[in-house]
Design a protein around this nucleic acid. Structure first.
Lengths: 360, 360
DNA sequence: TTGTAAGCGTTATCAG
DNA sequence: CTGATAACGCTTACAA
């Protein structure tokens, strides 16, 4: 039996600032000042108010305050989709960096989507347009849009992370996908490898485009043609394990086999290795493998997996400082691209091609 | 050069309901009705208003609305800490289930913490006490508390997930940690194993207490004593890989070796296997291993890892429906415990003890 | 240093 | 069916 049916605020039973004021014997505005701007109030009354607030367990209503001051001190982080993929935990890791930097800067983080369905998209836009947040961090995905509204229309600073959106005039923090893969491929070539299998992400995907371009560039630099590489996979990264399994079957069926695998995620590499082992091949004796992401688990694979390590935490931090900068100085400044380089971590999965007299 | 320095609402430049009203030539209250309660307004005017809103790209201010109605349609999910651990992606997976169920029920999800530091804790409490959310889902951790405030004081429905908090009168959705481990241990015993090494989580941790109890119960049931099991590890689950590495070293140093390993997370099992392999032991010939979590990666381990699979998605869904139930009917109802059973997925890491004439 | 009062953008009540 | 008008809980000129 609720007896507060006439209170619009419903069941939020907590004490109000008015209650604190009454208990402390001061005006409501004094309470406000004491709480948000101590120093502009007599120390003695301040203490009394503080005490009253504690005693009542008072918490200011964030909505009311936000409505009044138009500052939420919150930043919304837009995720690319569900967090669960496989061994590659780029997004969770980058979130770590983001969180640390945000908290350090006095901002709060809000995640309002774990998928990119219509409902979630709408929620994100509502928060952005509704004044609940002061900035947006988009993770490895496109700008949220629904019902003809687009986040880019909101008068909010936006920063993109892991995905280059500078073409849309959104400052972006990315890694050197292309260069890193080119370097790794070049290294394989130097080890004597001449035939490659590339485990791809979805066609057209930013990362896949960049990484594949890296492979081709390295081949080109070495005077090799595109036919030196076989493309496998090509579906969503979240099916990484499946891609690896299928690519392994493909490998097994080939008459002339590649001697080196370039996987675009650790998941792909891990499941590929597993199936190839089961079929009796030896790594790195029969084939070498390099992948992308640098998951913690690479160290515990069989054999330990060479992988291109993305400096995820740092990328997160950089993105946050870029965003905070924009929040404090919204006046234009052309969009910026920050590149944080990834580096190949060499482990046992990498070796000179069998029977080659590689360069050492 | 901003010229709106006198507007408290600051830079939130979006159109207001008043603008829509003006454009549509109606009163502001009519706009409100048309938008939130169509049917109570003439279809013709409704359409005109709708049009005006679209044309202006109007989005209602969530803060103002929330302040007025006290209903945010949002639920806050409290995370136990950073999302990044290792192969075990229980939390991300359970989030998936939560999200799906929440969206289905018309609720929004808000995550406001990626650690359990003071700042984040405060932010969570501010959101809860500040009326920004209508319910709380606590994931595998304790009730947020800071500055003498505790979330449990908020007049909000709370549900705990993965962690039994029924003792605090908080309805909880958990799995059968103890039973599941007891079953797995019993199975190892049936395979002839008599000496075990248990890779533990932090002492006192809910999961570790339950799982270890499961081991002991199984030993007891088989007439074996506590000395049949060696406890290793015992630090935070997020250091799972390290636990496995250290436990492997310990194993290697033992004169009489256990023949079966019971790991309380896949991470521990994976790194343990890796190091034990490097030392030349064969799994499951020399030793069997079972772990907990049922990560996707278990299928791609060497050998494929037997693990206790937690029905995470379902747990998430159950927790949400429990929570929504409470939101709709806040009147007491004693706290409930829902147990969703985990089951052992048997893979190659499990075999009869060497030289045993096990029961088949 | 403190109090009074206006107003943030909505929704809900009440007349018309 | 629609239009004034009073809240919602808080901050902030402005006055005292």
């Amino acid at each position: 039996m609720k007896n507060n049916k006439d209170l619009p605020a419903g069941d939020h039973a907590g004490p109000l600032m008015a209650d604190v004021a009454r208990l402390a014997g001061v005006a409501i505005s004094t309470v406000s000042r004491a709480l948000t701007n101590p120093g502009r109030v007599n120390e003695k009354t301040r203490a009394r108010i503080q005490g009253a607030a504690m005693q009542l367990g008072y918490t200011p209503n964030a909505l009311a305050r936000g409505l009044r001051v138009g500052k939420s001190n919150s930043v919304i982080v837009v995720l690319p989709g569900p967090l669960y993929y496989g061994a590659s935990q780029i997004i969770p890791q980058v979130l770590s960096g983001i969180n640390a930097a945000l908290v350090e800067g006095g901002y709060h983080l809000i995640i309002a989507n774990l998928d990119r369905g219509e409902q979630s998209e709408r929620h994100v836009l509502d928060l952005a347009f509704g004044g609940s947040v002061q900035g947006v961090l988009i993770l490895s995905s496109a700008v949220p849009e629904v019902d003809g509204r687009s986040l880019s229309q909101a008068a909010l600073p936006i920063v993109s992370l892991l995905h280059d959106l500078t073409a849309l005039d959104i400052p972006s923090v990315v890694t050197n996908d292309r260069e890193a893969v080119r370097g790794a491929t070049a290294e394989l070539i130097a080890l004597g490898h001449r035939r490659f299998q590339y485990l791809a992400g979805p066609p057209g995907d930013y990362h896949d485009v960049e990484r594949y371009a890296g492979v081709l560039e390295a081949l080109h630099d070495a005077g090799l043609g595109e036919d030196a590489v076989l493309r496998s996979g090509g579906i969503d990264y979240r099916h990484g394990f499946r891609i690896g399994v299928e690519a392994a079957a493909e490998y097994h069926g080939l008459a002339t086999k590649p001697t080196a695998i370039i996987a675009t995620s650790d998941d792909m590499a891990i499941s590929f290795m597993s199936r190839v082992h089961q079929a009796g091949y030896k790594i790195p004796t029969d084939l070498s493998i390099v992948s992308f992401d640098g998951s913690a688990i690479c160290d515990y694979c069989w054999p330990p997996l060479s992988s291109i390590l993305q400096p995820v935490e740092e990328m997160g931090r950089r993105a946050v400082s870029l965003l905070i900068e924009r929040i404090n100085a919204p006046q234009c400044e052309h969009s910026e691209r920050i590149i944080v380089p990834s580096t190949l971590v060499r482990r046992d999965s990498l070796a000179p091609v069998a029977g080659s007299m590689a360069l050492f």
